[in-house]
Simulated assay, not measured.
Amino acid sequence: MSLRALRTLLAIAQHGSFVQAAQSVHLTQSAISLHIKSLEEEFNASLFDRSRRLPVLTDAGHVAVERAREIVTLYDSIAAEIGGDSELRGRLKIGVIHTALASILPQALVTLGVLHPHLRLTVASGMSAELATRLEAGELDVAITTEPVKPHPYGLVSTTLYEEGFWIIAPSALAGLDTRQLLEQQPFIRFDRRAWAGRTIERELRRLRLRVNTAMELDSQEAIIQMVTQGLGVAVVPLSRRNLEQLGHLKIQPFGSPQRIRRVVLLEREDRPRGRLAAALANVIQQQTSE
Score class of each variant (00 low, 15 high):
S2P: 08
T8Q: 03
T8Y: 10
T8L: 11
L10R: 05
Q14L: 05
S17H: 01
S17K: 05
S17F: 04
F18K: 03
A22S: 07
S24D: 05
H26W: 05
H26I: 06
Q29I: 15
Q29L: 15
S30T: 03
A31C: 03
S33C: 11
S33V: 15
H35S: 07
K37D: 09
E42K: 05
F43P: 01
N44F: 11
D49Q: 10
D49T: 09
S51F: 12
S51K: 14
L54P: 13
L54H: 15
P55Y: 04
P55S: 04
P55F: 10
T58L: 02
D59I: 15
A60W: 15
G61F: 02
G61I: 03
A64Q: 07
I71F: 14
V72T: 08
V72H: 10
L74A: 15
L74G: 12
Y75T: 13
D76G: 07
I78Q: 14
G83K: 02
R89F: 11
G90C: 04
L92D: 00
K93C: 14
L101K: 14
A102Y: 14
S103A: 12
S103E: 01
Q107S: 12
A108R: 01
A108Q: 00
T111D: 01
T111P: 09
V114L: 13
V114S: 13
H118G: 10
L119W: 01
L121M: 04
A124N: 12
A129C: 01
A129D: 06
E130D: 14
L131A: 05
R134S: 09
E139D: 04
D141I: 04
A143E: 02
T146A: 13
K150H: 12
P151S: 04
P151Y: 03
P153L: 01
Y154G: 15
L156M: 09
V157G: 14
T160C: 14
Y162S: 05
W167L: 10
I168M: 09
A173T: 15
A175N: 13
A175C: 12
G176N: 08
L177S: 09
L182P: 00
L183A: 00
Q186R: 09
Q186P: 03
Q186I: 01
P187A: 11
P187Y: 06
F188G: 00
F188P: 04
I189D: 01
R190S: 08
R194V: 08
A195E: 11
W196G: 03
G198C: 11
I201N: 00
E204Q: 10
R206Y: 14
R206S: 15
R207F: 09
L210S: 02
E222D: 13
I224S: 06
I225A: 06
M227P: 10
T229V: 07
G233S: 11
P238K: 10
S240G: 08
S240P: 01
R241V: 09
R241H: 15
G248V: 05
H249E: 06
K251Q: 06
I252P: 10
F255N: 06
G256D: 02
I261R: 03
R263D: 08
L266K: 00
E268D: 04
E270V: 14
D271C: 09
P273H: 07
R274N: 06
R276W: 07
R276G: 03
L277M: 05
A282C: 11
V284W: 01
I285C: 02
Q286E: 01
Q287C: 12
Q288R: 07
T289W: 02
